[in-house]
């Protein structure tokens, strides 16, 4: 059974094709990484899955249920959570309040408090519960957002460049977090540039290029693929 599947997904943006015949699928319990040069359509794909864009044609299935017509918040309620690249935390509220806003939709009273405590312990922010989210370090803000995303125990977690701007230690710690979540049964789809990190976590890798699925396979297969290496040359990672 697939956790996420798209069927002949197309998206045209002012005449530019940003998703073309994307037939993507990933299994329950999988960690999938989405890679590709800049402008390959990775964030567009995320936005289509999250319902921020409507596809020009095609269908999206979550756990074999069609979600193409659902609004963003309805998809989230079905069990999809997201952590954006730029931390989307509520910076003028405390860490605790941030967590509460994330959790209160699902849980009440004591079970909410314990879910928040658990999530804060998981992302190692228990001591910072009373601080303003905006005053956390960059890495801590990223973790807070992961904590907010996972506190509701989603079935699918979307991560947009989860390690962007992190130190090597923070990156490694984030990788451990992702693997720990996965062991508990969460499926994870991550956009990532850091190939070392991809090697650490990914079960399978999908390469996007010009809005199309260019290649798919294990990290070893992808790294051995000369065509993949070629699309990265020239368009390039030089700004990474």
């Amino acid at each position: 059974m697939t956790i996420l599947r798209t069927e002949k997904l197309y998206k045209h943006f002012d005449g530019v094709k940003v998703a073309q015949d994307v037939n993507f699928s990933m299994e329950h319990g999988e960690i999938r990484c989405l890679i590709g040069p800049n402008g390959a359509g990775k964030s567009t794909f995320f936005k289509l899955v999250l319902g921020e864009h409507q596809p020009s044609s095609g269908e999206i299935y979550f756990s074999d249920q069609k979600i193409t017509k659902l609004r963003s918040f309805e998809r989230v309620k079905q069990g999809i959570a997201v952590k954006f690249q730029v931390p989307g935390i509520f910076s003028e509220l405390s860490v605790w309040q941030n967590m509460q806003i994330a959790v209160q939709n699902h849980l009440h009273g004591d079970s909410m408090t314990s879910a928040i405590d658990k999530a804060l312990a998981f992302v190692r922010l228990t001591d910072k519960a009373g601080e303003l989210a905006g005053e956390l370090s960059h890495g801590e803000q990223q973790w807070l957002e992961i904590g907010m995303a996972v506190s509701t125990e989603p079935r699918l977690l979307l991560l947009d460049e989860p390690t962007a701007g992190m130190t090597p230690e923070e990156t490694a710690r984030t990788g451990e977090m992702i693997q720990e979540l996965n062991r508990k049964g969460m499926s994870i789809l991550a956009v990532e540039h850091d190939m070392e990190f991809v090697r650490q976590i990914a079960h399978k890798v999908t390469v996007l290029n010009f809005g199309e699925i260019f290649a798919e396979g294990t990290i070893n297969e992808i790294e051995a693929n000369e065509e993949v290496a070629r699309i990265y040359l020239g368009t390039a990672d030089d700004d990474e």
Partner: peptide
């Protein structure tokens, strides 16, 4: 809880929607 969501919408409406709020 209602007020929490209002403040969340004021601070970052996009994020509030992505936490499952209409």
């Amino acid at each position: 809880r209602f007020g929490n969501v209002l403040v969340a919408i004021r601070e970052n409406p996009h994020r509030a929607e992505m936490l499952g709020y209409d």
